[in-house]
């Protein structure tokens, strides 16, 4: 990848916090290149360091070591005042919205423009445009307390776009929203990415969010990037244990499963195949049954993907027969640890 295609470059980012219990290193040297115009996801379980990482991008948190570049400018080398200028190129939205509670939606969107010295009338025109973009033209004079969670996040998005940033950082932006509202906000983000060409960095613990809008994804675990690739790649064949876990369990309720189940396999049905009852036919053909542990279907880049985690029978011969049957019909079968 050439230098000028890179929007954000992270190089050896380390972050240590001083706690009462002593020094705690949360990030152990993270490297990443985020391309211009892409939607880049960073996924991890809670405590993996993903929020710290995104806060290191705009230096809300100063890395203990390492360098951050934004569009060719090394942010970590800038003095405070110039850093503030550069931050205007990066909008940020948060899980808890963080709107100014004593200002209306319109005044909230005007706020970053006030800070950067945009004339009042011009700021107001721009703010009204942005509120229209996020679908809140009718709520411009409402205070945040009068808005729903989804509406608040829309105001926050409009506010983050007010300074016409190159990058939008989303820190668990949909984690406080219900599934319907989440879908609305995600499609708005996708739309912003496509229409305005803004690079978006999404931090989340939900694989579904990544699949919904991201082009590429990095899986962060224990303060390091475990694996990185296109969303399709990662979803189809996660290489690391943490990757498999996130893809299978979506990073949620993993505490619900205790103990390791034997003979677990992950099946991936590529494009269209799930309309044929492959699994059912296999069970009739082989006269053996499988135990379905998890299943879901998704659309990634317009292609349908179905995945299942199943437990095959203990009898080796039967199990192998089943696997062969499925593989012959284009199903990806891989043994996994289902914990």
């Amino acid at each position: 990848m050439s230098e000028k295609d890179t929007m954000i470059r992270l190089e050896g980012i380390k972050k240590r916090f001083r706690t009462k219990a002593g020094e705690l290193e949360v990030l152990h040297g993270v490297n990443a290149d985020i391309k211009k115009g892409e939607v880049f996801g960073i996924i991890g379980l809670s405590g993996a360091g993903k929020s710290t990482l995104v806060r290191c991008i705009n230096l809300l948190e100063r890395p203990t070591a390492g360098k951050v570049w934004l569009d060719g400018v090394e942010l970590t080398a800038l003095p405070e005042k110039e850093l503030r200028e550069q931050r205007r190129h990066m909008g940020m939205i948060f899980q808890q919205f963080h709107l100014l509670m004593q200002r209306t939606a319109l005044e909230n969107v005007c706020f970053p423009m006030e800070i950067s010295g945009v004339p009042k009338a011009q700021a107001k025109t721009k703010a009204l445009e942005l509120l229209e973009l996020v679908g809140l033209s009718d709520r411009t004079d409402s205070y945040p307390a009068q808005l729903s969670g989804g509406q608040k996040q829309r105001v926050a998005i409009a506010r983050a776009l007010a300074t016409e940033p190159k990058v939008l950082l989303c820190d668990e932006a949909t984690s406080a929203l219900d599934p319907n509202t989440t879908a609305g906000v995600l499609s708005l983000l996708k739309d912003i990415n496509e229409r305005l060409g803004i690079t978006i960095v999404v931090i989340t613990h939900e694989m579904s969010v990544i699949q919904e809008i991201c082009d590429r994804v990095a899986i962060i675990d224990g303060g390091l990037i475990a694996e990185e690739g296109s969303v399709e790649e990662i979803f189809r064949a996660p290489k690391t244990k943490i990757g498999q876990e996130l893809v299978m369990h979506e990073g949620s309720n993993r505490e619900a499963y205790t103990g390791k189940l034997p003979y677990c396999y992950r099946l991936v049905f590529n494009g269209g195949k799930e309309n044929e009852p492959v699994l059912g036919e296999m069970m009739i053909e082989t006269t053996g049954v499988v135990n379905i542990l998890a299943a879901n279907t998704r659309t990634i880049d317009g292609q349908d993907f179905g995945q299942m985690v199943v437990q095959f029978p203990e009898e080796k011969e039967l199990r192998e027969k089943m696997i062969q049957y499925l593989r012959e019909r284009g199903v990806v079968v891989e043994e996994v640890e289902y914990v």
Binding site: L60, E85, R87, M90, M92, F94, H98, L99, F111, T163
Partner: peptide
């Protein structure tokens, strides 16, 4: 968080 949001805007 509100203060951080303002900081993130420069």
């Amino acid at each position: 968080g509100v203060i951080e949001a303002a900081q993130s805007m420069g």
